[in-house]
Amino acid sequence: MNIGEISGLKLGKATRDAFGMALKELGGEFPAVVTVDGDVGNSTRTEWFAKAFPDRAFNVGIAESNMVGVAGGLAAAGKIPVVSSFACFLICNAFDQIRMSVAYPKMNVKMVGSHAGISIGEDGASQMGIEDVALSTALPHVVTIVPADANSARKATRAMLEHNGPVYLRCGRIEVPEVYGADAPFTIGKANTLNDGKDATIIANGLMVGIALDAAALLAKEGITVRVLDMHTVKPVDEEAIVAAAKETGRIVVAEEHLMAGGLGSVVASVVARTTPVPMEYVNVGDTYGESGDPMGLLEKYGLTAEAIVGAVKKVRSR
């Protein structure tokens, strides 16, 4: 399987690469931006900013809790710290520091997690952030963004710096197809409609957006038309778009590269249940850890495929 193949998308850069390049490009325009790293800047791509602005880049070593605390202090002193690590080490290892030193005091800290999801591949479960969205969205004040492709990640990086307050930006390791052109629309909290249809809505984010477009193409061949929403912001979520989808298509499938608990599916379900109850189905990692393997093989094994989304759409329509 190749993501985006069915819908004819061409492969683009990884979202972590797009973030890294954007951060470096924006360094001059945002002189308050500094980076705080935990010995993985060559993985999160903050090293590109660090090479361009060496005085504004700090590497505190393998010490994520301290890294986030330092970012909290920098923010309190007026800087815009961009603190990054693998999604799991950043969000899980430093969770109480994020809670106390960033979220609670509303510090202007930008948290960037790379290597999110099971598509990181061979390194296996210990390096896979699949609970990060649940944790970040649990915290009041924290904006959570999961971009679908490189163009969107580039726009999200600027939006994140312009936003005043804590943000979590979730990036992936592998190259993903280009869902957007260079003019990708990106407003925090505003979903993008990528395809329209009347039989159901697929709400997705991250690399599942490309897969959702593949599913939409497969369904179209069978005469089933679906709306595809890129819900890049999980918090604050676009309630209006969710309510409209529920009213106008009557069925919703949520697809994400995350655990069932606490992810985009949970967030959408809570909106739907409160405002416009309609049948829903979910495509996600479920309630289990990942493992080592090649990225595409893992996505297939864990059911994160266009075929799985097609199955979920048919199931939700039969209810």
Partner: peptide, 27 residues
């Protein structure tokens, strides 16, 4: 590191009895 192998990229004690700890997150 191949899909389905118990010899994962980082030690997984849930798959191998002779591995004492699931590690990979340092510290």
């Amino acid at each position: 590191r191949k899909l389905g192998s118990p010899f994962e990229g980082h030690p997984n004690m849930a798959k191998l009895d002779c591995i004492e700890a699931s590690t990979g997150s340092l510290g």
